[in-house]
Write a protein that binds this DNA or RNA. Sequence first.
DNA 1: GTCAAATAAATTGTATACAAACGGCTTAAG
DNA 2: CTTAAGCCGTTTGTATACAATTTATTTGAC
Lengths: 218, 218
Amino acid sequence: MAQSRADIIADQLEDLILTGAFSSGERLNEMQLAARFGVSRTPLREAFQKLGQSGLVEQIPHRGVFVCQPGPVELLEMFEVMAELEATCGRLAAQRISDSALTELRLANNNCQAAVDLQEADTYYRENERFHQIIYVQSGNSFLAGEAKRLHRRLKPFRRVQLKARGRLAQSMTEHEVIVAALTRGDAEGAAQALRAHVAVQGEKFHHLMMSLKPAAE
Amino acid sequence: MAQSRADIIADQLEDLILTGAFSSGERLNEMQLAARFGVSRTPLREAFQKLGQSGLVEQIPHRGVFVCQPGPVELLEMFEVMAELEATCGRLAAQRISDSALTELRLANNNCQAAVDLQEADTYYRENERFHQIIYVQSGNSFLAGEAKRLHRRLKPFRRVQLKARGRLAQSMTEHEVIVAALTRGDAEGAAQALRAHVAVQGEKFHHLMMSLKPAAE
DNA sequence: GTCAAATAAATTGTATACAAACGGCTTAAG
DNA sequence: CTTAAGCCGTTTGTATACAATTTATTTGAC
């Protein structure tokens, strides 16, 4: 993995954007950020190229780079794609998953349940991520796993919001059980449908939440 | 769309890599390429960041960037993902496609058939691309369309190879007809399955072709 | 003669300097 | 008073210069 100064800055900036440190449409001042990171503009600009490629910022020639937070519509679209990617991972994993991975999956799921009971949000998010990433890898398609990982990471901050919806956490756990069951019995279509629904509902919940917060969006 | 010098160079380099101007694993000499493009190393390095992000090159700190042509396994994986993306586009498009788009689709398909009859390869590839891109856009999910477009572009050179297989062209046209029919009657699952099969078979054909060319790969 | 260490050449990574383009301000005309 | 044109400051884009790291070569010891 590439790890020069510019790459580290790119990762840090990505984190800052994903955690919402910048408001959407805000311009990223090169000199300002260069001073903040204690480097010159050169590595910063190289980092911008990377961020632009993943759609986190928009680069307008001679005007600068602007953070590009997805709106409600684009977010729904991304959740829709995520649902399909996860469904595909599940369909393939049902046929290819190893016993040890199944054990790990159940372990992660149990840890999730424990975190729910103990109200430990951070633990829940970590174990939930592990649960999904195991399925990505077990698809046996590393390119697919990479793409799924990328989008999952991109949607991470919005998933957190969505999970705050009442009763969503418990429902999510039930869905996980269905997914594990389908994978255990090697039911490809069952796993695919369960995962698609599991992720799709996240997008819908998120959308409802957004609408309820912005009732009079013109 | 961003169009500075560095972005133009990135596109040109991408074309060069995709068309196979560089062999896999080859190092891209900065000074050499800078001279070739008539620019300094700075915009070139910015272009490298973008290429690295899309997986076309691997950047190793203090050692340089190396072109990263996918091997047979990774290629099959990419075709598998492409098949799913297209299937999803088809499933959504079946419900959302407009009449004018359907007309355009039939036109593109007719042009494809004409190109096959006249043995005009370039025309075929262009119209075939148009056919697929219409379906991407008509999915009504612009994020999905963008992802599909990206991967389609990435696989373009390998698709050309695959289409040289005997009888594949005629079969491909038949598959197109099935796809158009499904979209016309709004059959979401039918369109999805037809598109998945259409693309998946491309990956398989390509694989067979590779195996026949490299029979004794150790 | 072979292997290892040191040195030299080449290449990448970063900083700085310069050129070009954009946005905002002033100014002048209608 | 409004509007448009020109100038100035700021910011981006590119080139060059310098620093750091790697690789190849040479030299010396075993």
